[in-house]
Simulated scan of single mutants.
Amino acid sequence: MAAHLTLAAQPQFFRGASIQSRLLGLGLRHTVRPALGMWARLPFEIFPPNVIEHAAKLLPVHEGTMWRTVDLPSCNSEWLQAKGVSDITGGNDRAILYFHGGAFLTCGLNTHRRLVSRISYASEQPVLNVGYRQMPYEPITESVADGVEGFRWLLDQGYSPESITIAGDSAGGYLAFSVARAVIDKGWGQPAGVVAISPLLDFDPTGKQNHRNANRCQTFPMNAVAKLTDVSLRMDTRRGISGHRVDPVNMPLADMPPAMIHIGSREVLMADAELMANRLVSAGVPCDLQVWDRQVHVFQAAAAWVPEARAAIHEIGTFVRGLAEREATGTVPVSVSAPVQAADAAAVL
């Protein structure tokens, strides 16, 4: 228990910000951040079409990646295999269940296919990328339900619960923990682990408002975070589920699987990452919290040209592959290696 607490109190810090990553941060600070700030100040709710999802169809994926459509009961998803990665028919009995980010309002399978393909390659595992239902059409509880159906689909393909890692970025990090909790509560078994990239884990904005990063984030102004909370609560109320949704930081955690959390050092969501890591290890659950120096929200998606992103995906791959050792030996793999420099892992992906 003491080792777990030490890990949470002293997270791994990956020092250094390349020119590419600094340019990315500068670009977001002067485009996305002010646009979100304007949206938050509107006296009414407006949700533009998910244009970015349609435009992302033109983006290339990791070389050699294959994917096919999977129809879940209430949403479309896709089964993706990076180059050289086999599925259960080829003898690979491990898989990843992935949830894209986008604040439960935007993005989808197209925007995240490149990131998912790199995670598949680094982890040497196929991925079910879930195109879950989102606000303003459906509440977050339906997003979680779609994630549970994704887990059920993997079980139907022959994967065991303990061979499935659940992962996601931003809002998808919320879903990764929520779906893991739901699966355990259903008695389906404990997943192999959870990977959360820049996760939103607490819709109560108080902790973020009082955090040192409240006004340092290059992507999200604080008023946009508060607006998202209001939108989600109103959506719940309209659907008659107010008071029934529990955020990941407030869930029972003692029986959760090992987790890895990635967060940029100046992200407003650092408050959520720190709180979740501390609550996990206090419950006796190993959590590898990695803080990346001056990296932006979900910088891993920029792996094509940001070296720190490639290094971070390498870390994710190492963690996910190490979960197989836990199943085989009953031990819990926790990263104890020194933080890598971005250049050291850049050639891996």
Rank of each mutant, 00 (worst) to 15 (best):
M1T: 06
T6P: 04
A9I: 07
P11D: 05
Q12E: 10
S18N: 08
S21I: 12
L23F: 14
L24F: 15
G25L: 15
T31P: 01
T31W: 14
V32Y: 14
P34W: 04
A35Y: 11
W39S: 13
E45H: 09
E53G: 10
E53C: 12
H54G: 00
H54C: 08
M66K: 14
W67M: 14
V70I: 15
S77A: 12
G90F: 12
R94K: 14
A95V: 07
I96S: 13
T106P: 10
T106W: 02
C107V: 04
T111G: 01
V116W: 13
S117A: 08
S117V: 08
I119C: 03
S123Y: 08
V127W: 14
N129F: 06
Y132A: 03
E138Y: 15
I140C: 04
T141S: 10
S143A: 15
S143I: 01
A145T: 03
D146E: 00
V148E: 02
L155A: 07
S160G: 10
S163H: 12
S170R: 13
G172A: 04
G172F: 07
Y174C: 03
A176G: 00
A176E: 09
I184N: 08
D185L: 03
W188I: 07
G189L: 14
A192G: 02
F203E: 02
F203A: 01
D204Y: 03
Q209T: 11
H211G: 05
R212H: 05
R212F: 09
C217E: 13
C217R: 12
F220H: 12
T229N: 05
D230T: 05
R234L: 07
R239I: 02
G240F: 15
H244A: 09
R245S: 01
D247S: 05
V249W: 07
M251G: 00
A254C: 08
P258W: 01
A259Y: 00
M260S: 12
G264M: 00
L269V: 00
A271L: 01
A283L: 05
G284C: 01
V285A: 00
V285Y: 01
Q290D: 00
D293N: 08
R294M: 13
Q295T: 05
H297V: 04
A303S: 11
W305K: 07
E308G: 02
E315T: 12
E315K: 00
E315A: 06
F319G: 11
R321I: 07
E327M: 04
A328N: 05
V340A: 08
V348Y: 08
